[in-house]
Design a protein around this nucleic acid. Structure first.
Length: 861
RNA sequence: GCCCGGAUGGCGAAACUGGCAGACGCAGCGGACUUAAAAUCCGCAGACCCGCAAGGGUUGUGGGGGUUCAAAUCCCCCUCCGGGCACCA
């Protein structure tokens, strides 16, 4: 039988990740203490490092691989630098995909979800990620979600959770309500082809607006967060200072109706020439009741808005309006002004009504121009310039009021204060602050989520929240803590029909009132899954606690998170909810920190052929396939090498092959010197002569320079790509030096010292190969707990450096001078160089610029 | 429309503080080893031009202008790509 002649003649083995990686994985799996954090009594500095927890879809994608490769490199580096590292992982495992899968495959959501978790945990282990699995958090298990319920009760009692009827966003695809944050361009965040509808429903809300100012102001101090995320949160919170002003409706009958408007420019109120209502405004509806023309116009506007929203360009819609024929009275000057209904007035911002000041607002100006409404200028600049004569005039700084009664001549800023105070004093307004941020609607009409721990007593007991009105026929009653957890019933028929699936489970719905013992009905909505992820990282610090969400002492030791890593897509969802939750827990006395994470890093997307990887584009690269072909080390190292972590990364399989080749070169280097590495001997300086000695010095220098470079990158700006490039240069140099330095006639110990550093420097990027090489070296313990090497600046310093010499800014030659040479020495060397001399011959030297250590530029004429 | 990013060889990128543009890797080309191939090793390589060659010249970081002895880097204007916000009164 003929065998293909593969590596049989050599006693060397080829780099084979398919052999090395499973071997180490098995050993690590068998040793749960390897990545276990020490307790909160550790003397080491703590380092809490988290990557955002994934939804267990069943498959890791490249975005995960990149995210985890970054966090893992950092965690391993910090361990080697002597920190007490907590590096946990968990599962954001409630949510709709499990219900969809249940419909499709007839598998219960729990079963599907838990099987996915098993599969993904296996993939993570295969990748060699350094998670402390003893702290694993799975949000869909009762031992976790019971604490969601516990928090809900705490919030209810603190008046932070309340029920109200309001217009809510309804996704017909998900068959549930969505929070404002989960509506993107009028569409569901999970279905960008599904238009969100408005429905009037009674829902549970969390009072995030109570913390609006704190959430906003805190951003200024969060310099460990990307400016981009902070800006997005500022915009989302949308704080706006202004005033409310009541405009009484001129009574044709004996009504006392009034229209309250919100304005940031009360100083322009003498320029107001109409009042504008949103089409949805209740008064618009009441006017329309007796005015069929108005009614049909309003209906038309609403229909047009809906159509525009479906087309996806709400901004392109033309302004239009209709005169109601009614009038309002300007409380500042008693003037009558027409009341219009206009399509550009937002129903859900401010009061859904404005005073229209065409002279000083671009939108009002356009609208007035179209409908011929009067334009009255009441703000003038203190210094007149050409374009300050144009309308609309929007400036307020350095401008004053005109034709504004007793306020004429006042500066805008002053008038804003005084006029708001005047309105308040006379009972028709007040200074106020509005926010774009609304309270967080957390009710979901779905099965696979945390049951809300409330019941509705048929006898009519009311709850204790300030905004929990009695509901028919019963009162809202919170369950006592002892009744937790409210378990999800396991056997539930999932269907596409509306309403919560829990509502169809009689055993679940029918219960007794904890106050009177009479019959009661359970709340059948479940919580938004963003509740789960709002506090999960606190649970990591004490994941097994069955008496409390976590132990305060433990959380206070680990928090704030030192480094949080994830995608920017959560900037105004998870990242604002979890800041809110942290503040609530602080106010409950559970923790000391005001913010969850000291530093946030948002990594770039993984793209392929210029587009984000997605099933619909068919450009998805499977991590499993990469690992199978090149190994986990090469796959994750490529994810770090191909681009800096904050930028988008173009996945190129040839690049993974390149990293694999590099790892094979490293492996071979150790194979080549396997015997020599085992034999310990001291260098004999006498033996080192000539070029061998110089080469040894150069190699030692390169070793320390490489340590320095990689340390700087890992501790500083996280440019793993350049760190890995320097590692490649180092390995190339080791190959070059192999002949001269490694031989016994020269300085084998220098060579061996350099080789010994390699597994340490490689450990954050390629844990499997590092462990293998560390073992070959006879290293003690795990390489990830060995001390990170320290560069010796003396050994790293170059003896000589090359200085480029320019003549009139163009390179003439490069001269070599001793490192640290002063200006005079460098200039002398530069002007002595033959090529430089030739370049400046017959010219006059005007100026010589010498930048020590950098360059020489000789300016000639 | 507004606010952030970004644009550098055939490709991913590097140049961190204004100081040799293109490190490192991929793809490519040439060579060594091999019966041959794979693997591996060595070498070349921004573009254009001159030269047999050594070498030399011109040009070059999206485009245009500016500051400077010197600009991928700083300033002004513009184009394109990606992301966020978008009638927020």
């Amino acid at each position: 039988m003929e065998e293909p002649a593969q590596n049989t003649s050599e006693d060397q083995q080829r780099y084979n990740p398919a052999e090395i990686e499973p071997k180490w994985q098995a050993r690590w799996d068998a040793d749960p203490s390897l990545y276990a954090a020490e307790g909160h009594d550790s003397a080491k500095p703590k380092f809490y490092c988290i990557e955002m927890l994934p939804y267990p879809s069943g498959q890791l994608h490249m975005g995960h691989v990149r995210n985890y490769a970054i966090g893992d490199a950092l965690a391993r580096f910090m361990w080697m630098r002597g920190a007490n590292v907590l590096h946990p992982m968990g599962w954001d495992s409630f949510g709709l995909p499990a219900e969809n899968a249940a419909l499709k495959n007839n598998t219960p959501p729990a079963e599907w979800t838990l099987a996915n978790i098993v599969a993904m945990r296996r993939q993570m282990r295969r990748m060699g990620l350094s998670y402390d699995w003893s702290t694993e958090v799975t949000t869909c298990l009762p031992e976790y979600y019971r604490w969601n319920q516990w928090f809900f009760l705490k919030m209810f009692n603190a008046g932070l959770a309340y029920r109200k009827k309001s217009k809510v966003n309804w996704c017909p695809q998900c068959q549930t309500v969505l929070a404002n944050e989960q509506v993107v361009d009028g569409k569901c965040w999970r279905h960008d082809d599904t238009l969100v509808e408005q429905r009037d429903l009674t829902q549970w809300f969390l009072r995030i607006t109570k913390y609006a100012d704190e959430l906003l102001n805190g951003l200024d101090r969060m310099d460990g967060w990307p400016e981009k995320v902070r800006t997005m949160q500022r915009n989302w919170i949308g704080r706006s200072e202004g005033a409310l002003v009541d405009f009484p409706v001129a009574a044709s009958q004996q009504t006392t109706e009034k229209i309250t408007v919100f304005t940031t420019r009360i100083d322009t109120i003498f320029g107001a020439t109409s009042v504008q209502l949103a089409p949805e405004h209740p008064l618009a509806k009441s006017f329309a009741d007796s005015n069929p023309v108005l009614a049909s116009q309003i209906d038309e506007m609403l229909a047009q808005q809906k159509a525009a929203r479906e087309a996806g360009d709400l901004g392109a819609i033309e302004k239009r309006g209709v005169d109601t024929g009614r009038f309002a009275i300007n409380p500042f000057n008693g003037e009558l002004m027409p009341i219009w209904v206009a399509n550009y007035i937002l129903a859900d911002y401010g009061t859904g009504a404005i005073m229209s000041v065409p002279a000083h607002d671009e939108r009002d100006f356009d609208f007035a121009a179209k409908y011929g409404l009067p334009v009255r200028r009441v703000i003038v600049p203190n210094k007149v310039t050409d374009d300050s004569q144009q309308l609309p005039y929007l400036a307020e700084g350095d401008s004053s009021l005109a034709d504004s009664g007793q306020w004429t001549g006042e500066s805008c800023a002053e008038a804003q204060q005084k006029m708001a105070a005047f309105a308040k004093k006379n009972g028709f307004g007040a200074a106020t602050v509005t926010y774009r941020l609304k309270d967080w609607g957390v009710s979901r009409q779905r099965y696979w989520g945390t049951p809300i721990p409330m019941v509705y007593c048929t006898n009519g007991h009311a709850g204790t929240g300030p905004e929990s009105p009695r509901v028919e026929p019963g009162g809202v009653v919170p369950l006592p803590e002892s009744a937790l957890p409210v378990l999800l019933p396991p056997q539930v028929e999932i269907t596409q029909q509306g309403g919560s699936p829990l509502g169809r489970v009689a055993d679940f719905v029918n219960t007794t009132c904890p106050v009177c013992g009479g019959p009661a009905r359970r709340e059948t909505d479940t919580m938004d899954t963003f509740v789960d992820s709002s506090w999960y990282f606190y649970r990591y610090t004490d994941a097994k606690n069955s008496a409390a969400p976590f132990d305060s002492a433990k959380a206070n030791y680990w928090f704030p998170i030192d480094q949080y890593i994830g995608g920017v897509e959560h900037a105004i969802l998870h990242l604002i909810y979890s800041r809110f939750w942290t503040k609530v827990m602080r106010d409950l006395g559970m923790i000391h920190n005001d913010e969850p994470a000291a530093r946030l890093f948002t990594q770039g997307m993984v793209i392929k052929d210029g587009a984000k990887m997605s099933k619909s584009k068919g450009n998805v690269v499977s991590p499993d396939l990469m690992i199978e072909r090149y190994g986990a080390d090469a796959t994750r190292m490529y994810a770090l090498f191909a681009a800096p972590p904050d930028r988008d990364l173009e996945w190129q399989e040839d690049g993974v092959a390149g990293i694999s080749r590099f790892l094979a070169r490293v492996y071979r280097l150790f194979q080549n010197h396997e015997q020599a590495l085992k034999c310990v001997q001291q260098d004999d300086p006498a033996r080192m002569t000539g070029s061998g000695k110089l080469a040894a010095i150069a190699l030692r220098r390169k070793t320390h320079q490489t340590i320095q470079k990689i340390t700087d990158e890992l501790a500083g700006r996280w440019h793993f790509n350049t760190a890995i490039a320097s590692l490649m240069i180092f390995v190339n140099d080791l190959y070059s030096a192999e002949g001269e330095v490694a031989s016994t006639q020269s300085s084998p110990e220098v060579f061996k010292d350099s080789l010994r550093v390699l597994p340490l420097l490689l450990a954050p990027f390629a844990p499997f190969l590092s462990a293998e090489l560390w073992e070959q070296l006879g290293g003690q313990g795990a390489v990830f707990r060995a001390a990170w090497p320290v560069a010796d600046p003396e050994l790293a310093r170059e003896a000589e450096i090359e200085i480029p010499v320019q003549v009139n800014g163009k390179l003439a030659n490069v001269v070599t001078v001793p490192s640290g040479s002063d200006e005079a020495t460098i200039q002398t060397a530069a002007q002595a160089d033959a090529k430089v001399v030739a370049r400046i011959a017959a010219k006059t030297i005007v100026k010589v610029i010498v930048v020590p250590g950098k360059l020489v530029n000789i300016v000639v004429r």
